[in-house]
């Protein structure tokens, strides 16, 4: 049996008759970085809230480290660190007081761990400052400190780069990678910036209207990538005919009435251009496209068709 850190079976959340999350069967493997993809309001945060005990599921079950998470047995949460939506603190307390409170609730009494975690996130020297004086970026970093302080095996981060400047975003990415590689910590991340997710995740789960549409590894997406050369021309039919008969290209399709896509990207663009010009075909544009995670996401969301 696969070693899943998180597994959900038929996870459902209904509030006042509205289904926010429906029948989600999630599988997060030990040691992987798993990313949630989904539009705003798709249900990513609701799922994360249920996984961290903030919301109680209406139906279905959550298995954390193989053990069922219930209101009467939340022991799995001892091994989880998280930031959901935005980092919340007792604003009138200092950073250190907040971190100590967190450790006390988890029964974790290693004072050095706080200092180490602060150093890791470059937040030394702020221990005695009151949190209400922190910028959003600093709160985000402090939230990360709190999430990693007790050395959890799973970290759940909802929009972890919110409020961070570009350097902060890079630092965050490096930190996640480092914690994953060096300490084997499993991550569940969500971000509305797909490029950001693409750079660090191993697998993605696509959430649409509260449903988990697909779970797929990034390697799989890369394999499926439909890189192509696209020609925009007013004479798409004749272009396709010429490409087939002159250059023996068969792996192509006409999209709309002005675009021809050639999926055999080994074809030389100059050769294609030469043939088309020789036959008086007007070329408005010829370009090589590399599909991204964003394209995959759009294909998933819009029923397998890339919106052109």
């Amino acid at each position: 049996m696969m070693d899943y850190v998180v597994q959900t079976n038929g996870l459902t959340k209904t509030v006042k008759g509205i289904t926010l999350v429906s029948n989600v069967n999630l599988h997060i493997k030990k040691g992987e970085i798993y990313g949630f993809l989904g539009q705003n309001g798709a249900g990513k945060t609701t799922i994360m809230k249920m996984l961290t005990g903030l919301l109680i599921p209406s139906k279905g079950e959550i298995l954390l480290f193989g053990k069922k998470l219930t209101e009467t047995n939340k022991s799995g949460l001892k091994r989880v660190g998280s930031i959901i939506e935005y980092p919340i603190f007792f604003e009138h307390l200092t950073a250190m007081e907040n971190l100590e409170l967190h450790c006390e609730y988890l029964g974790y009494y290693d004072k050095k761990a706080i200092t180490q975690a602060l150093e890791l996130v470059h937040l030394k020297g702020i221990e005695d400052k009151v949190v209400k004086d922190f910028s959003l970026g600093m709160k985000q970093r402090l939230g990360i400190v709190r999430a990693i302080i007790t050395k959890p095996e799973l970290i759940i981060l909802d929009e972890p780069t919110n409020g961070l400047d570009p350097i902060g975003i890079k630092d965050m990415r490096d930190l996640i990678r480092m914690l994953n590689k060096e300490y084997g910590i499993t991550f569940l991340l969500s971000s509305h910036i797909l490029g950001e997710i693409e750079q660090i995740v191993d697998r993605v789960g696509v959430i649409q209207n509260g449903k988990l549409v697909n779970e797929v590894s990034l390697a799989e997406i890369r394999k499926q990538r439909a890189d192509y050369i696209e020609i925009v021309t007013p004479d798409a039919d004749r272009t396709a005919y010429l490409l087939e008969h002159e250059l023996r290209i068969s792996n192509m399709k006409i999209v709309g009435d002005r675009r021809v896509r050639i999926y055999d990207v080994t074809q030389s663009q100059s050769e294609i251009t030469k043939i088309l010009i020789l036959h008086d075909i007007e070329i408005e544009e010829i370009q090589k496209h590399t599909s991204t995670l964003e394209d995959y996401f759009y294909r998933q969301i819009h029923g397998g068709e890339i919106i052109v």
């Binding site: 005990g53 903030l54 209101e71 939340k74 949460l77 007792f90 967190h102 609730y105 988890l106």
Partner: peptide, 13 residues
Amino acid sequence: NKTISLSFGYPIS
């Protein structure tokens, strides 16, 4: 202030 969510996230019922 939503700080109650911190408490609910701990392994305590």
